[in-house]
């Protein structure tokens, strides 16, 4: 009897619709966020993540409404990210009904934001989202602005710094794997597990149930985030839980 590994469907929201791309481009429509949130909540998802992938001023307003309406119908934790730049942005998302807020580019630009947010709302609701790409010479480099901008920053060093500054959780996306459905970057997950004391949510590359299992068993991630495989009904949350349970992984069965 121990804490369960979490299965987290991720909804990338663009102007009020769920979309999914491959390596952050070529977006296709994947449904209505409220409808999907409702289904995932009843299917036994352990949490939900909403990422506002456009995060324009207009997108923010829509996102606020989507979060508010979604939070009204689910009884599991909801994380919201995308375009969160200030303490006030975070406050607004929490007030709309998010339980946690994911911060990406803004934390890299202003690392002090992490401790500021953790101090104001508690570390448990500050998720640092990191998008990384493998370097040809080894290691990983961080990209910001929805994966469009290389930063020259080492991904593992930043993960450690985020922890020291008071983050409560890391949501780490392998850009090389995102949307490819060829499996998570297990080396990256292992490196993170050895480096940080925070829970790590694995993201990018899930395509099969074996991928989820490998991220949890080999990558030692605490949670797996997946989009395509759930949105397009390749597998249900229940099937995933049953498979992982049979593989000896502790999951929450409903």
């Amino acid at each position: 009897m121990s804490i369960a590994k979490r299965i987290i469907p991720c909804l990338d929201v663009d102007r009020g619709r769920v979309v999914k791309g491959i390596q952050f481009v070529n977006l296709v429509d994947a449904g209505d966020p409220l409808e999907q949130a409702h289904v995932y909540n009843s299917e036994g998802a352990d949490e939900l993540v909403f990422l506002d992938i456009t995060a324009t001023h207009e997108g923010r307003g829509i996102m606020h409404d989507v979060v508010r309406q979604t939070a009204e119908q689910i009884f599991i934790p909801l994380t919201v990210g995308g375009g969160i730049r200030t303490l006030e942005d975070m406050r607004q998302m929490l007030h709309a009904g998010a339980d946690k807020v994911a911060i990406n580019s803004a934390a890299i630009k202003n690392p002090g934001l992490i401790s500021e947010c953790a101090g104001a709302f508690g570390a448990q609701c500050v998720v640092i989202a990191i998008d990384m790409k493998r370097r040809s010479q080894g290691g990983w480099e961080i990209y910001t602005h929805g994966g469009r901008r290389p930063t020259g920053i080492d991904g593992l060093e930043w993960a450690k710094e985020a922890e020291e500054r008071g983050a409560g959780e890391l949501l780490v996306t392998s850009m090389d794997r995102d949307g490819t459905q060829i499996g998570y970057d297990l080396e990256l997950l292992q490196a993170l597990d050895e480096l940080v004391q925070l829970p790590v949510i694995a993201s990018g590359g899930a395509g099969t149930l074996e991928h989820l299992r490998d991220a949890l068993l080999i990558g030692r991630a605490h949670a797996v985030l997946a989009a395509s495989m759930f949105h397009f009904k390749q597998v249900t949350i229940n099937q995933a839980k049953q498979f992982l349970h049979n593989a000896g992984i502790t999951v929450r069965m409903t």
């Binding site: 009897m1 121990s2 804490i3 004391q197 925070l198 829970p199 605490h222």
Partner: peptide, 15 residues
Amino acid sequence: DPTLKIPHMGWNVVS
């Protein structure tokens, strides 16, 4: 146990 991360975050058994 170093595999037990902080915060204690997630679904745990209430015995």
